[in-house]
Design a binder for these strands. Structure first.
Lengths: 343, 343
DNA sequence: ACAACATTTGCAATCGGTTGTGTAAAAATA
DNA sequence: TATTTTTACACAACCGATTGCAAATGTTGT
């Protein structure tokens, strides 16, 4: 396997007896270069198999035409769809995406943020680690005019772009839906440790919906989970069913939890939705395949990714103070399916 | 928001009255630099908030400490787990991953390969697009000593690293399992258009298992799908059930397809597994949540990602001819669950 | 005290595009 | 024809880390 050398603009320049600056400009249709030269340069570039070295360009221009994505994990359906949305949008502008997983660890997140900075990414899109309480490791981006967008799991105290759904409203709508189906004792699962606003907002929507319909907010119907996993969901469901006065409905802030509750109910002979109506969150693929289908709240992952990427591009030049605090809210819908349809 | 300048080794050099070369070497514990200087340099680097510019290092060293991943889409559970495995392994060596989605389009794949090359990735891990028949766009990597590893959907005619499972054996084992459960007429779904070997191998395992057990291979029990989606699965299942002599078992080369078949059967009042036993492939999360649980073949996504990444690292220096043809086979297992357990 | 060698650090070129400024030739104007 | 303006390209510095080689300093032996 012989060692080829990369073809550079110097090679093209030499072949055509032009300066490298001319080649560089010709390749990007600079107006000071004649049509004729441009055509000639592009032609030979193609012939010689020239592929620009983005590292060189990036070094000179001090940014790399890549977007850094920093998220807890890519294996969650919501997050992989989010990434997909970002990647597709980025590619349209010929940007690449670098992906890093914090695995919900604060320390990892700090480390990875540094690595992204080291890679001189043009922008950063982040969904915070569960553990993260302090966000000062993101200052290096803001301080250097690198656009920073938080998505979904956003900090409450950072003055930068945020792309979220209205979690309060979503929680409200989900709960209201259950109430309208006739539920009187609606349970809710929430995150135990959370610095951000996501689960708290959903919970706030839940309680407000209850109060608004003259239903009491009962603390033993609200369970804090350590992790949002199937297993934890089963545990919590069993706990709920073991109560003296078990719930007749559940608003789960994730479809996996909803599935776990539905299946636990079925195992215990509790009829879904008649005795126990459930609504989940996210519209994960599983929610419409499981039987009964899980009612859920849409969570437009790809759209959020697209919106986040577009915010990056809009602010590549410089970030104005007022814009930086902008919050983009995307819409959610209640998808009524079998798991909650009593009426 | 004031504009800070990035801290460089020049800044450190100036502060300490040392040469940049010394700084550079000190930061990576070069043996020609004294302990004392190293400590001093690292200390001030930290104080000044120095973050190395990987673009500069990459330009000089002609590679970027990143691994390029080129796959059809990241939203499939198998592929997102694969990426996760790669990312975790890469990070241990302080490498980043760049991800690109071909969306199963050949043209995209060609384009993205060029973009990866342009980014001077240190290595490439690829799972081919469904459409891809010609793989010459990967020559640019081989020709320039950039390690290239194909995973799962690998070309049949390219002399480079491949990380796969033994699809033939997996197909054989899956089919044999159904036979052992007493199935006599086992259907099979396969990919219509495929350049690679993946589905063909599974099918070959399927037919060999049948033949070995003196069961006929019937062409109307083998259905070619355009896409491996739920909807296509439903269509195919209905078609199978409409046969004069419908099957009593199915080997589906993907869990989504298995799920679609199971649910279609249930809708038509066909008892699973008694009248119709099903085994899927991949061990996607859904397979163990759906009811009945889907028997499946494990497909060790993360492990494959890890293996692929390790192959990259092992061959960063140079790729020897003999090694390049190496195929890594990972093991699969039959996971027997409800959907196929007759006995 | 001086050669011989080891240890540490500095110098300067290098990677490959990008871009501000300079300049020659061609075109336009006086 | 002389002069200004425009067009088209060249020169060279630059981005920031790396590295071969030279040089300075320190150490050892005789």
């Amino acid at each position: 396997m012989e060692e080829h050398r990369h073809v550079t603009i110097y090679d093209i320049a030499e072949r055509l007896n032009l300066a490298t600056s001319t080649i560089s400009r010709a390749l990007k249709d600079h107006h000071t270069i004649s049509e004729q030269t441009i055509k000639k340069v592009k032609q030979t570039a193609k012939e010689m198999g020239f592929v620009p070295n983005t590292l060189a360009a990036g070094l000179r221009g001090n940014q790399s035409k890549t977007i850094g994505i920093l998220i807890p994990t890519i294996t969650q359906p919501f997050l992989s769809s989010l990434i997909s949305g970002i990647e597709i949008t980025a590619r349209k502008s010929e940007y690449s995406v670098i992906i890093m997983q914090s695995h919900d660890s604060y320390e990892m997140e700090v480390d990875l943020a540094k690595s992204l900075y080291s890679n001189r990414v043009s922008g950063v899109i982040c969904s915070l680690a569960m553990e993260t309480k302090d966000t000062s490791h993101f200052r290096q981006f803001s301080n250097n005019n690198i656009p920073l967008v938080f998505v979904d799991r956003v900090p409450r105290d950072y003055d930068t772009f945020r792309v979220v759904i209205n979690n309060y409203l979503a929680g409200y709508k989900a709960t209201k839906h259950l109430i309208e189906q006739g539920c009187k004792r609606i349970a809710h699962l929430t995150a135990g440790s959370e610095f951000g606003t996501l689960y708290n907002e959903r919970k706030r929507g839940y309680t407000d919906a209850l109060l608004e319909h003259d239903l009491p907010v009962e603390n033993d119907l609200i369970i804090s989970l350590k992790e949002m996993t199937y297993e934890e969901g089963v545990k919590a469901s069993n706990h709920l069913f073991d109560l003296k006065l078990p719930p007749d409905g559940l608003f789960a802030p994730g479809d996996i939890l909803a599935v776990s509750a539905v299946q636990t109910a079925k195992k215990r002979g509790i009829k879904v939705p008649d005795q126990f109506a459930v609504i989940g969150f996210n519209n994960d693929p599983i929610s419409e395949i499981i039987e009964p289908n899980i009612s859920t709240i849409t969570h437009p992952a790809e759209k959020m990714g697209k919106a986040a990427a577009e915010l990056i591009f809009k602010n590549l030049k410089s970030v104005k103070e007022e814009e930086a605090k902008e919050i983009t809210f995307l819409n959610t819908q209640v998808l009524v399916r079998e798991s909650s349809k009593k009426i």
